[in-house]
Every structure is written in structure tokens, then in C-alpha cells.
């Protein structure tokens, strides 16, 4: 499933991602398309709270595709947060 939130700013990317994840059939992935840099940390964090792991790919200038997939087993939230913050810093640097 794809969720296009381009043009939306905080808090809507995270709110909509949470809503979409709630409706997502078990085992499926969600792809969120955003051009709002803060969403690179807020969306993965909403995912982590619901036990989704995320990967981020650049999708054009200033646009990113965040892929949220269900994690196997229980995610360690502390570790997930550390990973999200490190990656968001890396992405916004490049």
C-alpha cells in the first residue's frame, strides 16, 4: 500500500501513517512518500511504536520514500529510536 503525503507538514505525515498502519492487513508493507524532512524521523517512530521496521530511500530532490514493514518478533524501541535518529541525521546531511 502506498501513502502519498507530499505537501503535508507536521503532524499530518505521522498521523496519517499511524492511521494507515492501523488499517493495514497483517503482514503487508506501507510505503510513505514525503517531501517534509521532519517526517523522516516522525513516521518511522510511529511505525516503531506499532512494531514496524523502516527503510528510507531518496525519491527525487527533497523527496523520500519510507518503507515500513512488519518486524519479526518484538522491536526493541530504544534501539529503534537510536537507529531512526542516526539515519535521519545521515539523510538530511546528504
Amino acid at each position: 500500500m502506498e501513502l502519498d503525503v507530499r505537501g503535508e507538514m507536521c503532524p499530518y505525515p505521522a498521523m496519517k501513517a499511524r492511521e494507515a498502519l492501523g488499517k493495514l492487513p497483517a503482514g503487508e508493507c506501507l510505503e510513505v512518500l514525503t517531501d517534509h524532512a521532519p517526517a523522516l524521523s516522525t513516521v518511522p517512530w510511529e511505525g516503531a511504536k506499532l512494531n514496524y521496521r523502516s527503510t528510507i530511500e531518496p525519491a527525487g530532490r527533497g523527496t523520500w520514500r519510507i518503507r515500513l514493514e512488519p518486524a519479526e518478533g518484538k522491536l526493541d524501541q530504544k534501539q529503534a529510536l537510536a537507529e531512526i535518529s542516526r539515519r535521519a541525521a545521515e539523510l538530511s546531511k546528504g
Binding site: S41, Q77, L81, A82, S85, R86, A88, A89, K93
Partner: peptide, 10 residues
Amino acid sequence: TPKMPEFPAP
């Protein structure tokens, strides 16, 4: 609620 840390500078 679990807290999001400030992003450390690279």
C-alpha cells in the same frame, strides 16, 4: 510515552 531523543549531530 517513549521519548524521542534529540538527534545527535554527526
